[in-house]
Design a protein around this nucleic acid. Sequence first.
DNA 1: GTCCGTGACTAGACCGGTTTATAGACAGTG
DNA 2: CACTGTCTATAAACCGGTCTAGTCACGGAC
Lengths: 342, 342
Amino acid sequence: MTGPARITIKDVAARAGVSKGAVSLAFNNKRGVSDITRERIFAAARELSWAPNQTARSLSSQRVDIIGLALCRPARLLGLEPFYMDFISGIESVLAERSCSLLLRLVRDVDEEIDVYKTWWRSQTIAGAVLVDFRENDARVPALQAVGLPAVAVGHPSLTGSFPAVWTDDATATAEAVRYLAALGHRRLARVGGPAEFGHSAIRTAAFAATVRELGLEEGQQIATGFDGKEGARATRALLLAGERPTAIIYDNDIMAVAGAGVAAEMGFVVPDDLSLLAWDDSHLCRITHPPLSAMSHDVHHFGAEVARSLFALIEGTPTEALQVPTPSLTPRGSTAPAPQQ
Amino acid sequence: MTGPARITIKDVAARAGVSKGAVSLAFNNKRGVSDITRERIFAAARELSWAPNQTARSLSSQRVDIIGLALCRPARLLGLEPFYMDFISGIESVLAERSCSLLLRLVRDVDEEIDVYKTWWRSQTIAGAVLVDFRENDARVPALQAVGLPAVAVGHPSLTGSFPAVWTDDATATAEAVRYLAALGHRRLARVGGPAEFGHSAIRTAAFAATVRELGLEEGQQIATGFDGKEGARATRALLLAGERPTAIIYDNDIMAVAGAGVAAEMGFVVPDDLSLLAWDDSHLCRITHPPLSAMSHDVHHFGAEVARSLFALIEGTPTEALQVPTPSLTPRGSTAPAPQQ
DNA sequence: GTCCGTGACTAGACCGGTTTATAGACAGTG
DNA sequence: CACTGTCTATAAACCGGTCTAGTCACGGAC
């Protein structure tokens, strides 16, 4: 069995009684074919249920409709945080409008990430890329700029080199979080953050310390750790076992906050009476625990969509600048309350 | 500015002083070039930092190294469940070994899903696909079989038509869950399941009812709902408000179980003293709540990897049969305990 | 010395589209 | 009527690889 020969543009052209050039024009909405012919071509294509071969199209038009996203996860990681799910879904919403697709790859480290992007770009697999999780002096900036990959960076403009940045004002949001807890009477705050090497962790760390100082609160302990639940739990346990335990803890994402709530319960602390907890990013997770978690919330889906829009602008050659999306804002729920009376 | 002309195989050939055919042979590890020449070619490629254009390669070899996955999510959904994250990461682990990539698309309904797959396939964008969330008489089976898309189906073989299935034995796992709770003395169980139209929901529903009957327990209430936290919470609330409330609840995924735990706490029930909860799929979520959730656990990452392996076998023409991955097994944690004394 | 087989290598067709140069038909203009 | 411009449509070049058929040189067998 030879299998049915693939239908090509030539078959469609033959059936419509025109040249393949005409079919191409018709399918790309270009002028040069009359309406009647155009309709005849579409009819022929429909009858043969033909769709242009994307590969051939990319080759000759030197254009590609795939966007790349390589995410750095330790091998066999437990999956992605809710943040990324929302984020990806936001990117997708814009890609879908343009019939583009997202090429996803999980990689182990930054070197592999750079490799993947280089290969994708040199082999013309992708039209552009989204870069996340910026570090200070990020190795991707020089490496990917050198090969000319069009990319949009998620992170503070100070970190992203010449890649157009899409970012939220983490410093202001952190300050707001601290002020809110201070207004509730908390004087001993703590913060469980992401790995110190991430740029946004550093920004939040600095903002936390500055605001605490500014408000004259006790110097707050900050723990830099991973982003997953286990690490959030460990950090929380450490904080609560300390002699001078904090009365409120700010987390850098929602997974760690949920884990922290679990630890608090396990250690016999009542949230929010004994201890206030404030999450970040605010996925649906924050709403399904008891008590529901107060959070610095954030339209992550929209964030992803803006990133995708910026990337398209960049690819199409529109001069693109750093774009700030709305600052995460406080959404009080059941996990924050006035500080316990000493 | 015209930009630097793209480097092609011809440039590499010229630099190495050979024909483009030789370069092609060298880069595909085929016989027909001597070792010295081969090395000279690689050197030339390295100096020009050339990588074969994937698009051109696919076009002429009629081969493509991208796998498609379209996931059906209501518009702007809150993101994906942890299950999919693990699952995708498992698929990726196998794809990466072969330098393949995953093309991801979120769609709103099955019709759009079918469209996306058809377009991808007809346009030769993907080499094959992974199909999930099977319904009874699933519309994808006839539609995608008709176009000849090579695909592996995640679901019970009775649902997946001629697509090779990769599946877990939900019936046995459900029975085990019920038996475990019965052994703890529970006589009034309930189950919060996914939407009734999903095949695996139906299988679990039937197994639950059958096992309850077999053990002579009270007829257990089962609620079919969505898979997200909000729906899990609502269902749990309904169950706990009923006159004859259950003393143990089995959930179809972990998100709903976490939400259920939240509702229980909010209504003043102590888990596991007043109420036992049993989750499904067992992502890291189950371990970060307090108490940690007992679950029917499941190596979802490995599941994804097996799916990818099956798909490659299928694409390469190896006759492929249904593959059963290990049955989810009970992992008792803190959310299940002997039934309260009446 | 001739014949054959084998390994190294090349020219050129081919994959299925897009794009350019060109031609023919027709209308409007002076 | 000749001239120009516009519109439709086509043939052929082109994108950057793969792959087939064929050339050439060389060594061994008879």
